[in-house]
Design a protein around this nucleic acid. Sequence first.
DNA 1: TTAATTTATTGACCTAGGTCAAATGTCAGA
DNA 2: TCTGACATTTGACCTAGGTCAATAAATTAA
Lengths: 190, 190
Amino acid sequence: MERINSLMQLLTYLVNFSEAELEIIASCFKPKSFNRNTIILEREEVCKEFYFVYKGCLRTYFLDIEGRERTRYIMLDFNIGTALSSFIYENPSFEYLDALEDTEVLAISYSDFYRLNKELPNWTFFYQKILEMAYSFQNKRIEDLIMLSAKERYEQLIKERPEFIKRLSNKIISSYLDIAQETLSRLKSK
Amino acid sequence: MERINSLMQLLTYLVNFSEAELEIIASCFKPKSFNRNTIILEREEVCKEFYFVYKGCLRTYFLDIEGRERTRYIMLDFNIGTALSSFIYENPSFEYLDALEDTEVLAISYSDFYRLNKELPNWTFFYQKILEMAYSFQNKRIEDLIMLSAKERYEQLIKERPEFIKRLSNKIISSYLDIAQETLSRLKSK
DNA sequence: TTAATTTATTGACCTAGGTCAAATGTCAGA
DNA sequence: TCTGACATTTGACCTAGGTCAATAAATTAA
């Protein structure tokens, strides 16, 4: 109950849903739990769920040609998301989705998500907001990669996402910032 | 007339609009022309239009701290787009929009665009597609920046966008690929 | 056509940050 | 509590690609 209320709060923050709409939406989300270090979506699998993270941490990442992890997106508590590229197009996923901590979520299936998209105009506007935010996020990411040094990216993260630094390992942080782990370690010691 | 037909063709390719809907949409798009090397949107201006490029080339770019141009997105003929971040949120734009060639477009205003978004469900789905494509594009961009060398990015562009290489100057291509102009010149001569 | 401006090429040099390897620290499971 | 698997730190070294500068070539304007 607690979980679903948090989600409803997030939803109404984004779109002005009616009570009736919220009820329909709530009925689509199912609680799930994942243990720390569990892979939720493998490469080449099609991503069939969209998540509200109530507690814990989900993250998407892909592997480069040498097999190193490259973190794309991190969802801490009260965030929503999924392996979006795969989810949108029902494509085999290039990226993995995993739980970095013991994590409790609410999940909506692809079919429910797109049924709501057709039947519930406000859900369509909700999805529109999600996409707009996802786009802006990627846009910012590109600007940072292109314009900031490793050190500047790290310092920006400290300012803008101090909770990431606290909760995540160097390994994850460095792969998120596109810095070698050794370089991050050196940056921290200065 | 030719122009509007091309646009209608593109629209129906993306969403199954009815004749009546297409008529409403068509009435929102106004023809415009830009001379080569004209800035259409300055930094800090709010982007108030969305474009269908019928002929020519539009491009968005921003300036890094040293004042060098960094090209974000290039629209050749029969493409659609705008300075999306600013357009979406009505924010002062971080990026410029300019015409790299003499360019003919059809433009829809922000107010018409969002009126259609409210009144015409199929337009909402069209906008959804746009956002999904924009997201995927950025996603791919990030993967390329992170995983490919300068040479590999250039070779990929030759394969996937040979028309870019033909029509655009080294200066534009290099800023699009995030490579120094000198480096691109060296890559080409090998 | 010519001058002026912009763009492209080439060489010499430099550096941020990557790579490799060894030592040390940390923590989950038995 | 111990052990094996990871994570982190540190040093030594390397390199892709950037920077700076000087021509050369191509466009543009007049």
